[in-house]
């Protein structure tokens, strides 16, 4: 029997959040945390959490498992459970709507702020725009982001200034467009980022790198943005 302690909060009935204990019979199998959540939902129909693809590509089920952010669907129990105990909490730093469901509004706002779309002021050719494999390689490790928010919600700088600091996820995407050989808005993008908060609130704590379920490295991307700002602004 796995002991699961899970954060519960229903705004209609609970005056404050609380931790609830569950006993889950996994029959000794090393299932994913998401499977455990489904088993718990059969015990308590009211348990709320997001999920969709169940294979780690949609980014729905980011949550805090035994203190570390990750995706429930690709996290086997063997990776997180210590001493037969699993503690599940919503992603830290964002307002909780219900149980493990957080309001991701601030996270999405920061994503939208970096203008996450290709900008090219030249007329498009009749076929595709050409891009060398070397230039395309520069997008690897950037475009794969699934917007699960595991990184930004583990970042103290984002906790303190979620309205001003773009956060690791947004900055990773910002760099994805800055470095795309097909994008022509580089200097406009950079001028939007040179203030003291958007990029420079990153203090290189690297929690984002430690938790990214896709193995991406936002800290490195932020460093690259700083280099570009420096080259552009000096």
């Amino acid at each position: 029997m796995l002991q699961v302690s899970i954060y519960r909060y229903n705004p209609e009935t609970d005056s404050a959040p609380y931790m609830q204990e569950f006993q889950v019979d996994t029959q000794g199998r090393d299932v994913m945390v998401l499977d455990v959540l489904h088993m718990m939902k059969e015990q308590d129909n009211g348990l709320a959490f997001r999920r969709s693809c169940r294979e780690g590509v949609c980014g729905s089920d980011g949550m805090n498992m035994n203190g570390k952010n990750g995706l429930a669907c690709i996290t086997p129990l063997s990776e997180v459970v210590k001493g037969n105990k699993l503690t599940l909490r919503p992603l830290p730093g964002l307002p909780v709507i219900r149980d493990l469901v957080v309001d991701m509004g601030l996270f999405y706002q920061q994503y939208e702020r970096i203008q996450p779309y290709l900008q090219n002021d030249e007329p498009a050719p009749a076929i595709e725009r050409l891009q060398s494999p070397e230039d395309r390689d520069k997008l690897d490790g950037l475009y794969e982001c699934i917007l699960c928010a595991c990184c930004s919600t583990s970042c103290p700088s984002f906790w303190w200034n979620p309205d001003k600091f773009v956060g690791p996820a947004g900055l990773l995407q910002s760099y994805r467009f800055l470095v795309d050989s097909r994008d022509t808005a580089t200097s406009e993008r950079l001028s939007e980022l040179e203030d003291p908060f958007s990029v420079f609130r990153c203090r290189g704590i690297m929690n984002c790198v430690a938790v990214c379920p896709k193995g991406l490295n936002p800290t490195r991307a932020i460093g690259k943005i700083r280099e570009m700002l420096l080259a552009d602004g000096t």
Binding site: Y117, L118, A124, A126, P133
Partner: peptide
Amino acid sequence: AVFELEHMGLPFSRFDNGRI
């Protein structure tokens, strides 16, 4: 429709000549 997607920024893998 595919060229439109590329113009929108879809990061297609590339051949050496730069095409999709």
